[in-house]
Computed example of a mutant assay.
Amino acid sequence: MTANDTEEQGPYWYAADKPALLGRLRRIEGQVRGVHRMVEEDTYCIDVLTQISAATKALQAVAVGLLEGHIAHCVMEAAENGTDPSAKVKEATDAIARLVRS
């Protein structure tokens, strides 16, 4: 799902945490560039796989944080506003399914 697939547009709940979130993503980007460099330099395969695993776990941590925030903010906000939160819950469960498959 992309931002265009949803009826809402930012700023989203994570706006206050945006600098920290972007910092984490920059570090992950650096990790991925490091993996690229390792492959270019013919680094031992297990060492490359170790770095891929670290980058994957870092991305998963970002995803879980965003998911927690979605539930704490978006789902709860819908419920507090008297709106049926089922669409927000469905978004969360779909996101969980994508994370589990990856």
Rank of each mutant, 00 (worst) to 15 (best):
R26L: 11
T83Y: 11
S86M: 14
G23V: 14
M38N: 02
I96D: 00
E91S: 05
R37T: 11
L99S: 14
A72D: 14
Q9P: 00
V89D: 13
E91W: 07
H36V: 11
I96H: 06
A92N: 09
G34N: 01
E7K: 12
E80T: 03
E77Y: 08
A95D: 10
I71M: 04
L99E: 07
Y44A: 01
D17C: 03
S53M: 12
E41T: 01
R37S: 04
D42F: 03
D5W: 09
S102K: 15
R24S: 15
R24F: 11
G30P: 04
G23P: 02
D47R: 06
D47N: 06
H36K: 15
A20S: 07
L59N: 06
L99I: 08
E91T: 05
A58M: 11
K88I: 01
G82M: 04
M38W: 03
A72I: 02
A54K: 11
I71G: 03
E29C: 03
T43I: 05
T83V: 09
M38R: 01
A58Q: 06
R33S: 05
Y14E: 01
L59V: 02
R101T: 06
V75K: 05
Q31W: 06
E41L: 08
A63N: 08
E77L: 02
A61G: 15
E68Q: 09
A92H: 05
Q60M: 05
S86N: 08
H70R: 14
I52S: 03
T93L: 10
S102Y: 15
A72E: 10
E68R: 11
R33V: 03
L59Q: 07
H70L: 08
A3V: 09
T83D: 13
D5P: 10
P85Q: 13
I28V: 15
L49F: 10
C74R: 15
A61M: 13
P19N: 00
A92F: 06
A55V: 03
L25P: 04
W13K: 08
V100Q: 12
A3N: 00
